[in-house]
Amino acid sequence: MNLIMDALACGYGNHAVVRDITLTLEKGDVLCLLGPNGSGKTTFFKTILGLLKRLEGKIYLGGEDIKKWPHSKIARAIGYIPQTHHPQFPFKVIDIVLMGRTAHLGPFAAPSAKDTAIAEEALDVLQIDYLKERIYTELSGGERQLVLIARALAQQSPILLMDEPTASLDFGNQVLVLSRIRQLARSGLSIIMACHFPEHAFLYGTKALLFKEGAVFGFGSPERTVTEDNIKALYGVEVEIAEVYTKQGEAVKVCVPCNTNHHLKMSLGGLRNVQTA
């Protein structure tokens, strides 16, 4: 099922936070969304999910505009994975994952044995079935993120939206979560993921979308879109994009900030001046 956006504008009230989003997401795509804080990434997600009214434009799913769809119908098509959070009550992991079945249940229904089987399958797919009976609020950040992904899998929606899935995770957990996300895309899911590292677009993305100051700054393949110039324009920092080769001889693009030493020297020099003054 393709997700198509045509001149979409998102925002609050009459104020557009980001506008003119036109893109197509196909099966197996991982779209990496890059942009500084406050550039409208979360607003964009909320608009796709129907949590915010869209200001202009169209969103088509399988050829149909989703504007009038109820929450349950959208949820069956698009799963949302928020940043790791901390609910008030100590739910078990299996309870959290079962909530992914909400969109498939009638108004007075609770999950059946089949729903539980689907939830357990989702935990298996992410290889975290050992967490099933644990208390969600007592897990590490990486484990909680994986549980939220499992919940989205139990939702059985072909498209997943992830809001900075690796924010506040340590290095090991970042790699773990991102490699699982890549596996999911290879199994046929489409993913839109807000990233806070440009490198992630090279490592995991098939497409990249850049937001800057209320507009789309670039869209296309990561190689053509995530360039040194664009990063400078987006974040205001000089970077160098270089290729390194792994032991297997695979070329990997990395994004290294340059001039940091220069900045550091300047600020240290400033400090020294203050001390001598």
Binding site: K46, L49, G50, L51, P70, H71, S72, K73, I74, A75, R76, Y80, P82, H85, P87, Q88, F89, F91, D95, M99, G100, T102, A103, H104, L105, P107, F108, A109, A110, P111, R151, Q155
Partner: peptide, 24 residues
């Protein structure tokens, strides 16, 4: 008693519950 399971979803917060497909 009939909707008691869905109150779990509501306890996740309004927006998350809607994203999960609940008519909050």
């Amino acid at each position: 008693y009939l909707v008691r399971w869905k109150i779990n979803v509501l306890a996740m917060g309004e927006e998350e519950a809607q994203a999960l497909g609940l008519n909050t």
